[in-house]
Amino acid sequence: MTKQDYTTFTISDFLEDPDFLRHVKYQLPEDRLFWKNWQEAKPENLAAYLAAELQLQLMLSPKPLKTPPGLEENLLATIHQSIAKGHKRLRIRRQQYYWAGGIAASLFMVLFISWFFNATVRIHTTYGERKKITLPDGSEVILNANSTLSYPRAYAWKQNRAVKLEGEAYFKVKHLNRDIAQVKRGELFTAQTGTIEVQVLGTTFNIRERRGMAHVALIEGSVRVRSVKTGQRYQMKPGNVVQINSRNGLLTVEKQGSLQQSAWTDGRLIVNQTTVNEILRDFEDVYGYRVILDDPALGDKKIDGSISIKSEEGLLFTLSHILNVNIQKQGKVIYLKNR
């Protein structure tokens, strides 16, 4: 572990230090030995260490923190019993004031910890918008348009790294594990939608769930995919694409196609015998329009190649030339009409 001069650390410093967090969460033998020796040296800020340790243990408690019934009344009763008989009324009032202030501060701390540990960070993209997100563990996520990523506010203190996704996102997960054969709690990363659950140690992959179908495309590394509805599992290899039907949970595997699934991160749409209808459905999901073809038969036309999707205008311009149609916009509806 990285040895730092912890003698000057405050409570906040301890709660932001990865070595301290790992020690309290996992109690590894080498960590226990280091912190035992550090405490025996009796540093001046030992109280800050103990306070941070207690606060983190409260946050890691598996049960939601609740304010015990009658806490304030019991504390006030204890205060009154501890005040010696015969003290002056003014002194009694002062003591009650100070103790009541301490009670209020304690209650606030308990409620704040409870809120913090159970709160969720929610990041949403609108139509046509993309966001690059760095999670507290250093993992990176590119969130596609019309999508939502959520994770616990106390992500860094949770026993497991877990996020939830609605829409589409590209993940580059940071390795935390030292020994692949013995994966410890907190090293595994889980990404879940309403249909699929993806578990990884550290890898790069793309998830999309729209219109009743979920897709996982593995770029590098290794992931295990599970159908939430059926429990069916599959261990993916780089290049694999897993497709799961949201209605029945049926899982199917394509051996190749992962780069095609993740090309959107570079502003491209790679199509291989892809129908116009499929391309237009993706366009509607990303930009929020409804597209109507003047000739429905054009929707079955298949296209190969690479199409720029950096802007809605660029994609529509390309399609207008491929299909030989004119484009008309009326609010959020686009008409592709034969020339």
Score class of each variant (00 low, 15 high):
residue 56 L to M: 05
residue 53 E to A: 07
residue 31 D to L: 03
residue 72 E to W: 12
residue 15 L to I: 05
residue 59 M to S: 03
residue 37 N to S: 11
residue 8 T to Q: 03
residue 38 W to N: 02
residue 19 D to W: 14
residue 47 A to N: 10
residue 73 E to S: 09
residue 41 A to M: 09
residue 29 P to S: 07
residue 45 N to P: 06
residue 19 D to A: 10
residue 64 P to F: 04
residue 30 E to L: 10
residue 20 F to Y: 12
residue 34 F to Y: 15
residue 80 H to K: 15
residue 70 G to H: 14
residue 36 K to Y: 12
residue 57 Q to M: 07
residue 21 L to I: 15
residue 72 E to I: 15
residue 53 E to Y: 09
residue 36 K to N: 15
residue 81 Q to F: 10
residue 70 G to N: 13
residue 15 L to M: 08
residue 55 Q to D: 02
residue 31 D to Q: 06
residue 39 Q to N: 05
residue 14 F to K: 01
residue 13 D to Y: 02
residue 43 P to T: 03
residue 9 F to C: 00
residue 9 F to A: 00
residue 54 L to K: 07
residue 69 P to H: 14
residue 10 T to I: 00
residue 76 L to E: 06
residue 26 Y to R: 11
residue 45 N to G: 06
residue 36 K to W: 10
residue 71 L to R: 07
residue 59 M to G: 00
residue 45 N to A: 06
residue 76 L to A: 09
residue 78 T to M: 06
residue 78 T to P: 01
residue 44 E to Y: 11
residue 20 F to D: 14
residue 41 A to Q: 12
residue 59 M to C: 03
residue 77 A to E: 14
residue 61 S to T: 09
residue 73 E to H: 09
residue 48 A to D: 11
residue 5 D to E: 11
residue 9 F to Q: 01
residue 73 E to F: 09
residue 52 A to D: 02
residue 59 M to Y: 08
residue 73 E to P: 05
residue 63 K to Y: 11
residue 36 K to F: 13
residue 41 A to E: 07
residue 12 S to T: 08
residue 30 E to R: 03
residue 62 P to N: 12
residue 25 K to Y: 07
residue 34 F to Q: 07
residue 46 L to Y: 05
residue 56 L to Q: 01
residue 19 D to M: 10
residue 57 Q to D: 06
residue 14 F to M: 03
residue 43 P to L: 13
residue 63 K to L: 04
residue 57 Q to F: 04
residue 49 Y to D: 01
residue 48 A to L: 01
residue 79 I to V: 14
residue 58 L to P: 00
residue 71 L to N: 04
residue 26 Y to E: 15
residue 14 F to N: 00
residue 22 R to S: 13
residue 23 H to G: 02
residue 77 A to V: 09
residue 22 R to K: 14
residue 17 D to N: 12
residue 11 I to F: 00
residue 68 P to W: 08
residue 74 N to F: 06
residue 67 T to R: 13
residue 65 L to Q: 04
residue 61 S to M: 07
residue 73 E to K: 09
residue 13 D to K: 01
residue 23 H to F: 15
residue 81 Q to V: 02
residue 41 A to G: 09
residue 45 N to I: 07
residue 16 E to N: 10
residue 13 D to C: 03
residue 61 S to H: 13
residue 71 L to M: 05
residue 68 P to H: 12
residue 51 A to D: 11
residue 37 N to P: 02
residue 70 G to R: 14
residue 46 L to N: 02
residue 33 L to Q: 13
residue 48 A to R: 05
residue 19 D to Q: 15
residue 38 W to I: 02
residue 10 T to P: 08
residue 64 P to R: 14
residue 71 L to A: 04
residue 50 L to E: 15
residue 52 A to V: 05
residue 11 I to Y: 03
residue 5 D to Q: 06
residue 46 L to G: 01
residue 45 N to E: 05
residue 71 L to K: 01
residue 13 D to M: 02
residue 34 F to G: 05
residue 48 A to F: 07
residue 26 Y to K: 13
residue 79 I to P: 00
residue 66 K to M: 12
residue 64 P to Y: 05
residue 47 A to V: 04
residue 70 G to I: 04
residue 60 L to R: 09
residue 28 L to G: 04
residue 24 V to H: 10
residue 20 F to K: 11
residue 33 L to Y: 11
residue 26 Y to D: 12
residue 41 A to R: 03
residue 14 F to E: 04
residue 16 E to K: 07
residue 77 A to H: 08
residue 21 L to K: 12
residue 48 A to Y: 13
residue 73 E to D: 15
residue 48 A to Q: 14
residue 61 S to Y: 12
residue 18 P to R: 14
residue 39 Q to R: 13
residue 63 K to R: 14
